[in-house]
Amino acid sequence: MTSISTSTTPRLSGLSLRYLVLLGLIVIASVGFGLANENFYSLTNFGILLRSIAVLFLVSMGMTFVMLTGGIDLSVGSNVAFSGGVGVITLTTTGSAPLGFAAAVLAGMAIGAINGVFIGRLRLSAFMVSLATYALARGLALVIYDANSINVSNAAFLWLGGVSWGSMPVVIPFVVVVFVGLSVLLYNTPFGRNVYAAGANFNTSFVLGRRPERTLVWIYVLSGALAGLSAIVTVGRVSSGQPWSGLYLEFDAITAVILGGTSLFGGRGRLLGTILGVLLYGIIINGLVLTGTNPYLQSLIKGMILLGVVLLDTWTQRGKTS
C-alpha cells in the first residue's frame, strides 16, 4: 500500500471485525465441544471434520463470487449430482479417469453457462433462473442415472475424495490450492475487480465500460465448474455416483457465505470470510454430532447461530457508521 493508506491511523474495517467475531465463535465452539467430548480434539476427528466440509468449501467459494455480484446460485447442489453423473458415466464408458474429471467439470460449467446467459445477458433474476436450473439439473441427474446410483471402483477417480494421508484427507490441500488460485483471481486480476464492480453497481460498471454482463456469465460458469469439482470429490467420498447427492448443499453454502460476511446485496465480502464461515459451520455440525445433541434441536441451533451472527453484524455496522 502507498503512503495514502498507511499515513492514516489504523482502523478496523467492518469486514475485519466480522472475521474476528467469526474466529472468536470458532474458538468458543471448539472449546465448548472439546469440553463436552474429549474426542473432538483428536487428529482423526479433525480429518473427519475437514473432509466433511471439503465440498462445502469448494461450492461456497463459487457462491462467494456469485453473491459478490449480488446474485445467488441455487443450482449448485443439483449441479453436483448432475455433473457427478456425467463424470461417472464418462468414466464407466471410457474407463479413463481424466476424461471423467473433464466431463464432470465441463458438465458443471454447462449448467453454470445456462445460469450465466440468462442472468448476465438477459438480465433475469438470479433467484428465478437458478431455481429453474436447480430443478433442471436434478431432473437431468435422475434421468442420466435412471434414478439409481452407480458404483465406482476406479482408484484414480476416487483418489481426490476418498484418500487420506494419515489423518489428512488429500482433498484439503486441494481445497487450499483452489482457495489460493481463486484469491489471486479475485484480488489480483481485472476480472476479480470486475466482479466487485458488477455487484457494487451494475449501471456504473456498465457505463465505465467494464462489461458487467459478460462478467456475470463467467461468474456462474465458475460456480458451475466448482460444482463439477465438488462432484468429483463427492463421488470419491461415497465411492459411487448418486442422483440425490448434493441435496440442500446450496443452502449450506449460502449460510456459510453469509456467515462469512458477504453482503447479500453484492460488492462486499472476501473469500477468507467464507472459509471461516464454512469452518464455523462445519465445527458446529461436527460438534453437534459428537455431543449427541438431539437431531430435532440441531436445525434450531443452526438457525439461531445464523440469526445471531447476522444481528451481530448489523450492530457492528451501525456502531461503525454512527
Binding site: I48, R51, S52, R237, V238, Q242, G246, N286, V289, P295
Partner: peptide, 23 residues
C-alpha cells in the same frame, strides 16, 4: 444409546458414521 439422522443425504450419513466410529 443415541440416534442420528442423515436427513436423506448420503454425504451426511457417511460423515455421521465416520464421527461415530471415532467415538
Amino acid at each position: 444409546g443415541r440416534w442420528l439422522s442423515a436427513e436423506g443425504s448420503l454425504e451426511k450419513m457417511i460423515q455421521q458414521a465416520e464421527v461415530t466410529i471415532n467415538e
